[in-house]
């Protein structure tokens, strides 16, 4: 059984919600990134999302844009991101989702991607600019591999399409909480609640909320609405803002602990 499925099953049986943590691969550099990712897994993260840096991250806000640029500057790439995931996998059993824009995947070669991510111990691929209509070739390449293609739904997604997305989802459905790019704050909890309920009602898979979740308060308010929360920019920002000599893994772990507390404090 895929580690993502195992994890959600286990969490459900203990009535807990998943904390999905996004971090950009190679931010601020390969070795530090590896230490941060491993520490994150030991600090209460249920699913690890490793972001492949891309030159033109049109779905991302400034925090992840800058992180991508930082990582690319140190020579990070798609192949090195797979290597990083493999290194994380050596130490932990946490499910790993590789997040990417489509072009690096397409350029690397779909069959090669499928083979190498499976060998690296990656459990899911999330391709942010690849809607199901264009995902045929990648889906075919992933056949026979124990790697889910994670799908996204948005606040603008119409009901009949939500049903289509939900049924085709693998692992979990990534429900975007708000309009805009990643890292934009100011969530309207009531809006999110309404949308999440509608999606949960038709989705046979776990539903996780992402975009704009950054505080303990967000975590507490939103955790009851879904099966998990995805936090990205709030973690990446810590890396960007830390002083040069800071213990980055510890800082990220502290933030994860706060979010975890918020989620677990929910009724």
């Amino acid at each position: 059984m895929n580690r993502i499925d195992q994890t959600f099953k286990k969490l459900a049986s203990s009535n807990r919600k998943a904390l999905v943590a996004y971090l950009t691969a190679g931010d601020p550099d390969f070795d530090t990134s590896l230490r941060i990712l491993r520490t994150a897994c030991a600090s209460g993260v249920d699913v690890l999302e490793i972001g492949v840096p891309f030159s033109d991250p049109t779905c991302d806000g400034p925090v992840i844009q800058v992180a991508s640029a930082r990582a690319l500057k140190t020579g990070m790439s798609f192949s090195k991101s797979i290597r990083l995931a493999a290194e994380v996998r050596k130490a932990v059993e946490t499910p790993i989702v590789l997040f990417s824009y489509y072009n690096p995947i397409f350029k690397y070669g779909l069959d090669r991607v499928a083979k190498e991510v499976a060998e690296a111990g990656v459990d899911g691929l999330l391709v942010v600019d690849l809607p199901p209509e264009e995902a045929g070739p990648l889906t075919d390449a992933l056949k026979g591999k124990d790697v889910h293609l994670i799908r996204l739904a948005a606040p603008t997604t119409k009901p009949e399409r939500i049903r289509m997305l939900a049924n085709g989802a693998g692992g979990f459905l990534y429900l975007i909480t708000r309009l805009g790019v990643t890292g934009t704050g100011g969530l309207d909890y009531a809006d999110v609640a309404k949308h999440a309920a509608a999606v949960k009602a038709v989705c046979p898979h776990p539903v996780c909320l992402g975009f704009g979740i950054s505080t303990c308060e967000d975590a507490r308010a939103l955790a009851p609405l879904a099966d998990g929360l995805i936090v990205g920019s709030a973690l990446v920002r810590i890396i960007a803002q830390a002083p040069a000599d800071a213990d980055l893994p510890a800082l990220v772990a502290t933030k994860i602990g706060e979010l975890r507390d918020g989620m677990d404090a929910c009724p």
Binding site: C59, V128, D129, P131, A153, A154, T156, T157, K158, L165
Partner: peptide, 20 residues
Amino acid sequence: ATGHFGFYGGRYVGETLIAA
């Protein structure tokens, strides 16, 4: 009908823009 010029074109965007 899906906006492809042979192999090219299509709609490679985030889900939020699909409805628009």
